[in-house]
Amino acid sequence: MPASLILPLTAAVPGHRYVVATVRGDDALAERLRASGVWAGAPIERLAAAPFGGPLLFRLHGYRLALRRSEAGRVDVAAAEGAL
């Protein structure tokens, strides 16, 4: 796999595949993200966004997870091969 670009999860575009690279920080939020399956290597896809800068919706491990933009900003992802 070629070296891929690392970007914050908030910048993920619908219709592309990503893989979680890192979850920054070591607080309640980071722990909660990990407990929800946001760990390094997990494939993740952006599905929708709430209006007015509201939360974002992602699919990972086959389920849908809503994160605020501030929460998603803690997660770095790598663009994976190929579009969906």
Binding site: A28, L29, R32, L33, S36, P55, L57, Y63, R64, L65, A66, L67, R68, E71
Partner: peptide, 9 residues
């Protein structure tokens, strides 16, 4: 509060 919430099927 954190949001981090599942949207179930």
């Amino acid at each position: 509060s954190l949001l981090v919430m599942e949207l179930p099927a």
